[in-house]
């Protein structure tokens, strides 16, 4: 029965959470299935006892005169059903701590690679993805290379949101006064649904984005394409964009991190992850980042009043087709 149930759960591909496409989500999926099996074990014990008691001791005509005995309890039985749950909780605690530590870190086997940093920030009911290394920015979709650790740095321009790509990793909050981090790897190419999981107001239901994993070569090509063809993101335009409630996909060859830095290092972040110095990404990736930034710094001053483009959305979708 357990086997059937496991097969049912993992075989059912519509259960997104149990259909992982990366090591972090796989760890979580395994943890969930393990805990479900353990819980079914507990349920079976309780249900068997329950059915036994109800069928055996129900009032019948035949036992009308029966007077139940007075029982204060049984010390050993009570110790037994205290001790067994303690053991179960202990086992689950070990699993929990281990897996929690594991999914907070760069997935195993990928520690030696330089992670790709992507800032994901939310405003109203949309997501902005800024690539400091590449100097580009997208809205409501994110492209990532496969088999390379991705470090999402999350923050919000408004209410608390929760960044969630169920097939790659669990969720984490994006907040206005600190940056949180989420490490993940996609190990196969493909399109996945990402969304905000934390209620953030009227347009919350539509706050979805596409996460597209592509081979490193395709990814490089896409980045190059964006840099060559997409318009720049100016400060004015970004401010306008922040106020807009919903937009489709957008692509820019520069990003907003320079004129609107993320809230890193302003306040304590609760753990070492959040304590990074302001613009820490520069130190991590000195060469490409600095050149990139000086580049679009000068560029962004050239064209400050570029109108809100609608074409990049279409452009980016053609890129995706190229990527496949």
């Amino acid at each position: 029965m357990f086997v059937i149930f496991t097969l049912l759960l993992s075989g059912c591909s519509s259960l997104t959470v149990l259909n992982p496409k990366g090591p972090a989500a796989r760890t979580l999926s395994d943890t969930i299935i393990f805990s479900i099996l353990m819980m079914i074990g507990i349920l079976v014990v309780v249900y068997v006892l329950y059915i036994f008691m109800l069928t055996k001791y129900r009032a019948r005509k035949s036992n009308e005169g029966y007077e139940p005995p007075h029982e204060e309890g049984n010390k050993w039985l009570e110790i037994l059903w205290t001790a067994i749950p303690i053991v179960i909780v202990a086992i689950l605690s070990v699993v929990t701590v281990k897996t929690t530590v594991a999914v907070e870190k760069v997935p195993e086997g990928y520690e030696n690679q330089k992670p790709l940093v992507i800032y994901a920030s939310s405003s109203n009911w949309k997501w902005h993805f800024s690539y400091p290394e590449e100097g580009i920015e997208t809205v409501n979709y994110v492209n990532i290379p496969t088999n390379r650790p991705i470090e999402f740095r999350l923050y919000s321009f408004g209410p608390i949101t929760s960044f969630w790509i169920p097939q790659l990793h669990g969720q984490k909050y994006a907040m206005s006064d600190m940056v949180t981090k989420l490490n993940m790897v996609a190990d196969e190419p493909g399109s996945m649904l990402g969304r905000n999981a934390n209620f953030s107001g009227e347009g919350f239901a539509h706050m979805e984005f596409e996460a597209l994993a592509m081979s490193p070569a395709d990814y490089e090509e896409w980045v190059k394409d964006v840099k060559d063809t997409a318009p720049e993101l100016t400060q004015d335009e970004f401010n306008k964009l922040l106020k807009t409630e919903h937009v489709g996909r957008m692509t820019f060859s520069t990003n907003h991190l320079e004129f609107s830095p993320p809230p890193e290092g302003h306040h304590h972040g609760g753990d070492s992850n959040g304590n990074e110095e302001h613009q820490g990404h520069k130190e991590l990736h000195p060469d490409p980042a600095t050149t990139e930034e000086t580049e679009f710094d000068s560029e962004s001053n050239v064209n400050p009043d570029e109108p809100l483009p609608t074409s990049p959305a279409e452009e980016s979708s053609t890129h995706q087709h190229d990527g496949h």
Partner: peptide, 26 residues
């Protein structure tokens, strides 16, 4: 008893921080 036990065991599942990254807000 049986219904609450389901609530209880799923509570234990949610209590596992790592797994909760996937259950939270759902």
């Amino acid at each position: 008893i049986p219904i609450f036990t389901i609530g209880g065991v799923t509570g234990v599942m949610l209590a596992m921080a790592s797994a909760d990254y996937q259950y939270h807000n759902t």
